[in-house]
Design a protein around this nucleic acid. Structure first.
Lengths: 237, 237
DNA sequence: GCAAAACCTTGATCTCGATCAAGGCGGCGC
DNA sequence: GCGCCGCCTTGATCGAGATCAAGGTTTTGC
């Protein structure tokens, strides 16, 4: 195998491992031979922050960075309907009829697999299909959690829940440092679009949490959570 | 084959057909032999309106009736995070860690399949796994649509979108009469819990739509939509 | 058929978060 | 260094939808 393929195989392994964060693990389902085949068929992409990801019907492993999914109303109102923190798996290869946009929030590295290859591997290894199903159902659970937050939580509960979710995702991604102190990869506008609020309300609620001692903020984006339990009490569920 | 099994096989066929409403169709993936096997392993249940469905790790086909999925916050606030209109498929057999409750809104008939049987059939027929994945991704799309509605639409846009969604689901279920006149199987409280509003606001907005001529209401629950396009203009996207 | 209970509507008032407005901070180009 | 621009914060005011309140209508049980 050429060096090129070695590198890609390492990527595949890294990516498969990342899928285990949600549950199960893609790699576990596949034989070594299939991993090599996947590596040969895959392609690696580096995408700059702010760029839209192509909706080309491929499956992708997110190697590093953060991706957001946005749905727009006709007059420009925006709702963020999902985040992907590396390592995770973007598996929405069936044509999306809905006006949903996929965008890199930070610089992003990903590894994409043609749908045809994955489809064939599902035939060889049905466990892969179950794995993808499990992953999709995990995303569905997350989406439903956020529906409850959007519909029924107050602004400050939304902010507390959001910070906890980010902390958990950052923790799962195994970033340097502990998960209670992290660099928020989102602007206030992104947070507002995720929580169904305005940037002013987001800013005010963050300030309030800070003056209450529930969080610390350095340089706008550097957040630390001295007391997870205090946040949990504020998140409404 | 005994009559008992004949009846069940008919149910299975009906149910598989219903899955085609979202996309694809379970039946199409399976061989005749497997359908008979599924019929033998399945059990039929009649569930009264208002009863909670058991979360017993089975897959179920919804033969008739309407089912809601609710997520509760600790202080009793409620959010409905999904509806199933027959014919549809309830495929959430992996343990749900979240506080989500499944409840019959009307009297319901369903046919449930043990997880082990479906799992084995996925091994025999990987297309079944892909089909279930496609179904889950369809549910995910629906959930994301409602996230956008919950986060960014006004009360009257929410009501208009809701009525259109119900009309589409009733239409897909092939009920008697056309899809623009139907019996709403939900109370005002259910509608409010779905849209993140209060019952008073739901009532007011429905009254407003009626006085604007966009809808007609007889007997509280009997709704007709004389002008779908007028509703579409009001739904914000 | 009648009473009770559940459900729905409408009005008055209040409140949370949106909107409008002004200014601060930090990074970048020159 | 300086000015511009993007991003964030804070204050003042407004308004959509919540809450409180009262009464009407439909369903259910007997």
């Amino acid at each position: 195998m050429t060096a090129r393929h070695d590198v890609q195989q390492a990527d595949v392994l890294a990516i498969c491992k990342s899928c285990e964060t949600r549950q199960g693990g893609l790699c576990g389902a596949l034989k070594a031979r299939q991993l090599v085949e996947l590596a040969k068929a895959s392609s690696r992409h580096e995408i700059l922050a702010g760029t839209e990801l192509p909706n080309d019907g491929t499956y992708s492993s997110l190697l590093s960075g953060v991706v957001k999914l946005t749905r727009n109303l006709s007059d420009g109102r925006q709702q963020i309907v999902g985040f992907y923190f590396a390592p995770d798996f973007l598996g929405r290869p069936f044509e999306a009829k809905r006006p949903i946009k996929t965008e890199a929030l930070t610089n992003v590295a990903l590894c994409s697999f043609p749908r045809t290859v994955i489809d064939r591997m599902i035939d060889e290894t049905p466990e892969l299909g179950r794995q993808l199903l499990r992953h999709a159902l995990g995303e569905l659970d997350d989406a439903r959690d956020w529906m409850a937050a959007l519909g029924r939580k107050t602004a400050s509960e939304k902010i507390a829940s959001f910070l906890l979710m980010v902390a958990r995702n950052i923790a799962a991604s195994g970033h340097p440092g502990n998960s209670t102190s992290f660099d928020l990869p989102l602007t206030r506008a992104d947070i507002a679009d995720f929580l169904g609020l305005t940037i002013e309300t987001v800013s005010r609620e963050l300030s309030r949490l800070r003056s209450d001692g529930a969080i610390r903020i350095a340089n706008k984006r550097q957040i630390s959570l001295p007391s997870i339990s205090q946040l949990e009490q504020r998140c409404g569920d």
